[in-house]
Amino acid sequence: MIVQVENPVLEVHDLTVSYDKNPVLWNVDFSIPKGKLVGIIGPNGAGKSTMLKSVMGLVDKQSGYVKVFNKDLDEVREQISYVPQRESVDWDFPASVLDVVLMGRYGRRGLFKRITKEDKAIAMASLEKVNMQDYAKRQIAQLSGGQQQRVFIARSLAQQANLYLMDEPFAGVDASAESSILNLLQEMRAEEKTIMVVHHDLQSAYEYFDWVILLNMRLVASGPKEEVFTPELLQETYGGKLTLLDSLSNFIRQKEFPIKG
């Protein structure tokens, strides 16, 4: 069940990715319409984060291509923003909340250039959107998990992009932070932004998203949630691992054969 769309914001075509010679995504092929909240759902090790990373060009593709707004990534960098997993960085880094949010402006500012007053104003406005303006001067190590997540989202907002890829923004945050993040994402959607979110909780997924991608090493389904949330497709996504594929990749890893060239 894969619904392809006209004039997609994001088109992933026949994408295969492997990590340490171990294939984690096989021939993934889907497209995403504009202005939707998109959930990427699947069990642990399904390749959800890897897919976001390969869209952003952070991991090498073995085959396939990605088009954003019908262009190559490098032509439209400024329109796409990535929020990595919160645990992927060391929060004891000597930086204030504002310092981190300002990083969202580095791409536009370019090499050697200093941060301007305008950048600071944008960063502060982004902090206000996640309701963290009072924490601007706070050292990042002092933040709670939910606050750290909101700082990451503010940093991404400071990029003023049109397509957002967020890796597990709801992981390890408390209920009130979760609902405030969800509100923010809905506001962004109202402004015609497209947001793709890696999500681990099947329970809340139906409520949160408009469009759902079911992933388990391969693409199981992609489409409006009403069409995708069927017992058969969920069973296909979560019901047991693809054991043969798994042992095959194990074997490949041990022998260190390259797969697909």
Partner: peptide, 20 residues
């Protein structure tokens, strides 16, 4: 390169996603 070195040290993946 102060701002480039600092973003590289804090979050290299994100720096790359910005196109740096």
């Amino acid at each position: 390169l102060f701002k480039e070195f600092s973003i590289l040290s804090f979050d290299a993946d994100y720096a790359q996603s910005l196109g740096l």
